[in-house]
Design a protein around this nucleic acid. Sequence first.
DNA 1: AAAGAGAATGAATACGTATTCATATTTTAA
DNA 2: TTAAAATATGAATACGTATTCATTCTCTTT
Lengths: 348, 348
Amino acid sequence: MYKRCQMKKKHTKNRHHNSTKKITSVDVARLAGVSQSTVSRAFGTGNELTEETKKKVLKAAMELKYRPNAIARSLTSQNTNIVGIVMANAKSPFYSKTLDEFTIKLQKLGKQTLLFSVEKGRDIDEILSHVLEYRVDGLVITSATISSEMAEECANIGTPVILFNRYATGTNVSAVCCDNVKGGRDVADYLLDRGYTQLAYIGGNPKSSTNIDRLKGFQERLQERGFSDLLIRNDEYSYESGYRIAKELILEGKKPEVIFCASDIVALGAMDAAKHEFNLKTPEEIAIVGFDDIEMASWPTYSLTTIQQPIEEMTEFAIDLLESKIKKMNTKCELKLFPGKLIKRGSA
Amino acid sequence: MYKRCQMKKKHTKNRHHNSTKKITSVDVARLAGVSQSTVSRAFGTGNELTEETKKKVLKAAMELKYRPNAIARSLTSQNTNIVGIVMANAKSPFYSKTLDEFTIKLQKLGKQTLLFSVEKGRDIDEILSHVLEYRVDGLVITSATISSEMAEECANIGTPVILFNRYATGTNVSAVCCDNVKGGRDVADYLLDRGYTQLAYIGGNPKSSTNIDRLKGFQERLQERGFSDLLIRNDEYSYESGYRIAKELILEGKKPEVIFCASDIVALGAMDAAKHEFNLKTPEEIAIVGFDDIEMASWPTYSLTTIQQPIEEMTEFAIDLLESKIKKMNTKCELKLFPGKLIKRGSA
DNA sequence: AAAGAGAATGAATACGTATTCATATTTTAA
DNA sequence: TTAAAATATGAATACGTATTCATTCTCTTT
């Protein structure tokens, strides 16, 4: 009964569109004169198989252009070899570099990247729900954070989650970050050491942990060294935002000697505003410091002094951590902080 | 026998780690007092179901925090709702923007993006092989092209492929591109109209269709208008490459009046080289034109005259085309060219 | 040489959902 | 009111692979 049905179906298909025939391990088995199990074993690792039969199977597979079905495999093996990555802002230099690093490194481990984009104002939980339907082996969230309910749900179904470049207190979710507080402090020290006294801070998204910590470290250290008046403005992580805020500050007659921007892209905006709106020279008339060390920061036109985030080590670590969680070797909730490095260039 | 085995397994698991129990439609069915089929129908669309039973099922599902398994669904429904995207250079501004557009638009259609990164010098066929194992519904290739064997194989297994921002003659693969020849011609006209006579071209990857066509259009039009000496250099699509080549040109005493660069990122490099290595003013002493219109091109520091690629329309079209191919509504091989738009800014 | 260990293979089945087919129930038509 | 049509649901099975269990065959070991 089954066989007849099967054949009828195939026949219909073939008549309809000659070429579209799906080759399965059963077809290979038939051609090679072995069982389907054997074909499966020939494509796995560490299976007991005679060299001879293996060769026979692979030859048949080649002949039919057989390609194992990863979807079917995932169903039985209970792991997809897919890692979900959730990003907002995937087109910004820092995050696109991060994504690239993740993708390449995962690929080398035989894993694939399922990418999700969170648009501003969209509900991340809804997106996460979709991610989880695909039974990803693990999840990296680089933008936006995760609600505690969703975190718990991930934990329940056994999907490890790692936050990258942000963390969420009280959610029991591991995170890999740059030490933003220390970065802020280092900038404060550097600027005070160079004799600046009129300081400003232009932040990004005021609710993000990155922004909070960078400001916190900066402000804290300034106060420790006796400087308490700091001009603070927040908005969002973008060139336009940096440009606009810097312009406003200067127009309001509050031109500082130096602005510490919460990210390079904001810093570039601020620098351009100073230069093109007021013809101010950097660093003589207004100094700028950024955070991230994106590629553009090193271009001579900007030569931006900044805190470098060690993206490669961070992604490397994040993947290792995720792997160990996937293998259930590590179930602790960790917050790993990487120290940033002050890169001194011309802008301050 | 099966049931006993099943229960034993669950029991073991629960003892080992209390929380990790996979909820399936069978569990939901049991709680709701219906069959598994009914649960399946409750989550599909356009199925005959009483409001009452549907509500009952959804309530049970909610209670158990059930989430349909997309992998299992893919196996039966024969489509994954996953689109594969192959990129090299995913961190460059143009491609990261492209990727973002694709991801967001696909998501809105309920599709997911499986991302593959091709590193320089890596074999793309091997990567494509992996993509195909996941039985993606369709494939977008934005970097590197596709071998004709692989194209044929995709066609055989019924996976539609679309090249984006490149095309391959003789492979019968559809492509969505900017009209690069016309773009090149437009730049030629613009520059000749403004009276430039000493022209240079700095290309990207000399084998890419983008580079070939942009140069072709540019050179063709120059010749049509009687200008035959054009300085041509190719290397790769990067800031560093643009910087280095521009520097070399000038050092060799061949400073042109204007350089047409095959991409914005190359143009920015060239501009910076002129400015920082030789203190040349743009556009007075050396004019620069790019291609793409990435965000940075509009920043006042660069104010780059360039050809704008209509990325949003192009991605939109590419997705529509892919969709219609997935639904087998369109099996033609198309090459869709979008006209670029000359954006006149300060650099030329 | 016989028995037992070990290796190679096949048969059967699980993975979780969608769908077809059959059946029970309700609605419509006559 | 009854036959027929339509609707709602359940039972069974397919999707393609991995794996467990059983079986056959080969090789040691005494």
